[in-house]
Amino acid sequence: MLLTPDAKGVFPIAPTPFLDDGTIDTASIDRLTDFYLECGATGITVLGQLGEAPKLEHGESVDVAARMIRRAGQLPVVVGVSAPGFAAMRALTREVMERGAAGVMIAPPNTLRTDDQIVGYYRQAVEAIGDDVPFVLQDYPLTFSVQMTPGVIRRIVTELPSCAMLKHEDWPGLEKISTLRGFEKDGSMRHISILCGNNGLFLDYEVERGADGANTGYCFPDMLCDVVRLNAAGEREAAHDLFDAHLPLLRYEQQPGAGLAVRKYVMMRRGLLTSAAQRKPAATMSATARAEVDHLLRRLARHDPRALVD
């Protein structure tokens, strides 16, 4: 099942579960995958930006992706393969595609500055992995320091037919979504899927601007699924009400450097992860931070019972 430009819904970014000693927690991989299936996810992304991929050996990356692909069954799994060089990207892509991945996600290196450099990089990436492999274009200037204008995204989509999806994480980025959908309407760009990241901070209006859903790792991916579903059903105010209830925790989890620790802590509290451990080097949560997150969960539980955790 290969990724197509018609993909919609929510592709949660899966964290890589570790035990306290730093070994990979395969039981939690299985629980996470089952949870994504149950909560209405339409796909999964593994080894994404907050999947701690750089901390894994090549064989570990293949094993984590392969386990999730097997467990997910018919649910498409996209694997992050971003790497400093194309040899590593090619090797990981080949192995995960052989194991049934739906496609791969490629982030730009922070050395790219001009539009021609950006387009040239993705042209070379496709040459390396093969033009038969669907790929997700990750646009996240706040982290990668690479500015992709709507025009350069249109060039990539036009020149590279294997580009199936844009992971939109620009900030502010609502006008970019409108511009890209405008290109489709005037016939100057073919249709691609647009799923949004940034922890879902702007998902409420992103889907109204034409985004197809979310591709991010917030600790309540089931809420993201509900917001996308409610919006598609025309229940705008219900979608906004649910989103607004989660916004304080979304904001807290989005903190640079601390966000993954918060996410894993909540997922552990929800019973999805055995441990909140990250592989070193890693940020840790202080007792004060944990108390703040617990407070946010209690407040959220007034509106969403899923936040009632042991």
Score class of each variant (00 low, 15 high):
86 F>V: 11
260 L>W: 03
138 Q>T: 11
194 I>S: 06
144 F>Y: 10
248 P>N: 04
124 Q>D: 14
216 T>W: 09
271 G>V: 04
265 Y>P: 03
102 A>R: 03
283 A>S: 15
284 T>V: 08
114 T>Q: 04
175 E>P: 02
172 P>G: 01
18 F>Q: 09
60 E>Y: 04
224 L>D: 13
69 I>E: 08
118 I>Q: 05
72 A>D: 05
37 L>N: 03
79 V>K: 01
109 P>G: 00
55 K>N: 10
300 L>P: 00
153 I>N: 09
113 R>I: 02
235 E>Q: 12
37 L>G: 07
267 M>W: 06
284 T>W: 05
121 Y>C: 03
206 E>P: 03
248 P>H: 01
40 G>I: 04
296 L>A: 05
90 R>S: 10
19 L>I: 09
166 L>F: 02
16 T>C: 11
78 V>K: 07
58 H>W: 13
133 V>D: 03
127 E>C: 10
274 T>I: 05
217 G>N: 11
308 L>P: 11
44 I>M: 12
297 L>T: 01
282 A>H: 08
172 P>Q: 00
245 A>W: 08
174 L>E: 10
103 G>C: 09
248 P>L: 08
163 C>A: 15
117 Q>K: 05
231 N>W: 06
254 Q>N: 14
76 P>A: 04
271 G>F: 04
87 A>E: 10
165 M>Q: 14
207 V>F: 01
5 P>V: 01
229 R>Q: 13
131 D>W: 04
93 T>N: 05
84 P>R: 04
235 E>G: 07
274 T>Y: 00
135 F>A: 02
205 Y>K: 15
191 H>A: 10
